[in-house]
């Protein structure tokens, strides 16, 4: 067996950090904890963990600020957003900044471990909620003439995968449903993540503003 993954927990609630640590310590190694943007940046630069569990709302500018400061210089560090905030603009915002996934805080221990492993492997983690946000963000038809890049729309297959995830299917179940391999599902999800990050589609920014539904 290879070395355990090195994980950092960044969240401003000490109780929550302790809870997560108790749940995941062992299979992975928790190398750092931090409670705000400043301490997180210092601790992360020092320990260079494989995966950072990042709260969306935190003193000093939130998870978004942490990613902004570290992402360019430390591209190997993978961020997984972990939050109770269901505000679509913040979730999409943190993904666009560079996080490789988003899960809600009531996720179970084993599921969180699976998500950490997936993110560490370079794949993306989409919860049903995030898949719903993504479908919403890319919703609506835009005229072909307006599309600058391929980033601006999802392929039919990607949309299918997103819909199944939003319907509560795990990656394995999505693969079975569409008669494709889990690896292919992962490829589709990663490609959606990339589009989400690179798309300059103006609807995407405006959508975040217009949208006030959970």
């Amino acid at each position: 067996m290879t070395e355990p993954l090195r994980v950092a927990i960044v969240d401003d609630h000490a109780m929550f950090r302790r809870g997560v640590r108790a749940e995941i310590d062992g299979p992975v190694e928790v190398v750092a904890e931090a409670e705000d943007v400043e301490s997180a940046v210092t601790a992360l630069v020092e320990t260079k963990p494989d995966v950072v569990l990042l709260d969306v709302h935190m003193p000093g500018g939130g998870g978004l600020e942490v990613i902004r400061r570290l992402h360019v210089r430390h591209p190997d560090m993978k961020f997984l957003a972990l939050s109770v905030s269901d505000a679509a603009e913040d979730v999409i915002g943190i993904i666009r900044a560079g996080a490789r996934g988003y899960v809600t805080k009531n996720i179970s221990g084993p599921e969180l471990l699976a998500a950490i492993t997936r993110v560490a492997g370079g794949d993306a983690v989409f919860s049903p909620r995030l898949a719903g946000f993504v479908l919403d963000a890319f919703a609506g038809t835009i005229e072909v003439a307006q599309i600058d890049e391929d980033f601006d729309r999802l392929t039919e297959r990607e949309r299918e995968v997103m819909r199944l995830i939003a319907r509560g299917y795990a990656y394995k179940e999505v693969a079975k449903e569409l008669f494709i391999s889990v690896k292919t599902v992962e490829t589709h999800v990663s490609s959606v993540l990339r589009k989400l990050q690179l798309s300059s589609r103006h609807e995407l920014t405006r959508w975040a503003n217009d949208r006030r539904l959970i």
């Binding site: 969306v56 709302h57 003193p59 000093g60 939130g62 978004l64 913040d90 999409i92 975040a208």
Partner: peptide, 12 residues
């Protein structure tokens, strides 16, 4: 509230 307390950065 989160914005006022500096807990988030506007993604826009």
């Amino acid at each position: 509230a989160a914005t006022r307390q500096g807990l988030r950065t506007s993604p826009n």
